[in-house]
């Protein structure tokens, strides 16, 4: 998998989170995952279909996810419900929307699916190894896990 596919998602996540959290957000070192990814408690999954296909996952633990949605809502949220799901969906939409723009500028054409939210630990199986980049916020760290390939 090409590194140029993951960078737009990482840059987009960093810039969107800086805006919605109003504080500094940084990225860690990229690493190679396996074809089977065991995810944390909360997964925001966006699919890509077109010239580039596969999936992008925001992989968070429960505490970090709840802290981020609390800041986005301006109120403390302590459990997962319709509003936390809607907030995570919107976060996924904003990150994928911005990344799509960057990938389109690089000449790739594809569509993205609306984000799906999974609460509870889950496993994703792919045909290629994923690339993983940690994102560090003051509310906790999470991972962007990307498995994309050119068609």
């Amino acid at each position: 998998m090409r590194v140029e596919y993951i960078n737009p998602f990482v840059e987009s996540a960093v810039s969107v989170l800086r805006e919605v959290l109003g504080s500094d957000v940084s990225r860690g070192q990229i690493s190679l995952g396996s074809k089977i990814s065991v995810l944390h408690d909360v997964a925001v999954i966006v699919g890509l279909v077109g010239q580039v296909e596969g999936r992008v996952v925001l992989d968070l633990d429960k505490t970090t996810a709840l802290k981020i949605v609390s800041v986005m809502n301006g109120e403390e949220m302590t459990e997962f419900d319709e509003m936390t799901n809607a907030t995570l969906t919107e976060l996924g939409n904003m990150i994928s929307g911005r990344a799509v723009t960057r990938l389109a500028e690089l000449g790739y054409k594809f569509d993205v699916t609306p984000p799906a939210i999974f609460v509870g630990s889950s496993t994703v199986s792919d045909t290629i190894e994923s690339l993983i980049v940690p994102i560090v916020t003051e509310f906790g760290a999470f991972k962007i896990n990307v498995a994309l390939r050119e068609r």
């Binding site: 986005m72 809502n73 301006g74 319709e82 509003m83 809607a86 907030t87 969906t89 919107e90 939409n93």
Partner: peptide, 11 residues
């Protein structure tokens, strides 16, 4: 369609 965006706009 997002109740989160509806809430943000309302606020």
């Amino acid at each position: 369609d997002s109740i989160f965006v509806q809430k943000q706009l309302r606020q």
